[in-house]
């Protein structure tokens, strides 16, 4: 049967092979939302593996910010860089994570422009799972960013009185908050047309959000009206908590604040995101 083998060489898809894959046996049963979300999370990790360049924001932002603020402003703001570092580092950790969350929106916007999201949306799976999965994958990015900031801080002389427990707890709280905040960016990424506009608008929100807070300086020196703004900014509460935990206190009330604002972020931006996602053109 020489003719057949020659034919197979030119047409790699043979009728028999096709028939056998089409008779695949019983249909698998539908997986639940947790499994599908985790599977999409796995996709995000695979993408990090194949395109490691995308980690540049997770590594460069935190290093730049830590070094710049410590050495540029440390002396002026706190008398010495060492003293300022103790105050600043927990704040930088918050800043770095919040900055990294922005990337979620930009990535998602790029992703949705591609046809593969059409395929995901046409699957019989829990509808939010592609988004939830992407956010779960981002947790890895936040963890990497946090590890870099903390390591760099320790090298520069940061000494957390709260010890390993305090550090781990504060990072976990940060991950929760970042996951919840990400829904703001997923919403934006579904409203705005291009990744560039997502980046622009995110920056515009991000700067006031992180700078009009207690991350870099104690708000005591600010005018009263600004202090009022700082006080309602959830980032302020988050920084207070992280600072507290790292330095050995447990600001229970503030932790409550952070958790409530996290829940609110998801409760507001999650459903809006899903409505936009469902009606995406």
């Amino acid at each position: 049967m020489n003719a057949t083998s020659a034919e197979q060489a030119s047409a790699p898809v043979t009728e028999d092979a096709l028939r056998s894959v089409l008779l695949a046996g019983e249909r698998p049963s539908r997986p639940g939302p947790v499994l599908t979300s985790l599977t999409f999370g796995w996709r995000a990790l695979l993408k990090i593996k194949h395109v490691p360049e995308q980690l540049v924001d997770v590594t460069m932002f935190p290093i730049m910010f830590t070094l710049m603020f410590t050495y540029l402003f440390g002396g002026a703001l706190a008398g010495s860089t060492q003293e300022y570092l103790q105050f600043l580092l927990p704040g930088i950790l918050v800043q770095a994570n919040v900055m990294i969350t922005m990337n979620t929106g930009i990535t998602l916007n790029t992703d949705i422009q591609k046809g593969v999201f059409d395929r995901f949306r046409s699957l019989p799976v829990w509808r939010p799972s592609p988004l939830v999965g992407a956010l779960l994958g981002d947790l890895v990015r936040y963890s990497i960013g946090s590890a870099i900031v903390i390591t760099l801080g320790l090298v520069l002389g940061f000494r957390p009185v709260g010890g390993a427990v305090g550090v781990v707890l504060s990072v976990e709280l940060l991950l929760v908050f970042s996951f919840c905040l990400s829904w703001l960016w997923t919403m934006l990424s579904l409203i705005l047309r291009t990744p560039n506009s997502v980046a622009g608008v995110s920056m515009m929100l991000m700067f006031p959000l992180t700078f009009v807070s207690n991350i870099f300086v104690d708000p005591k020196t600010m005018p009263g009206w600004l202090q009022a703004v700082v006080e309602v900014n959830p980032i302020t509460h988050l920084a207070t908590v992280v600072r507290g935990l790292m330095h050995g206190s447990v600001p229970a009330g503030e932790i409550g604040w952070v958790l409530v604002s996290s829940v609110l972020l998801v409760a507001v931006f999650g459903p809006i995101t899903m409505v936009l996602y469902r009606n995406k053109k």
Partner: peptide, 17 residues
């Protein structure tokens, strides 16, 4: 496009149960 051929199919197979 960032994933390999087998990864794409695995991803879908897992999503489909």
């Amino acid at each position: 496009e960032d994933l390999t051929g087998v990864e794409n199919l695995l991803l879908l197979a897992r999503l489909l149960g």
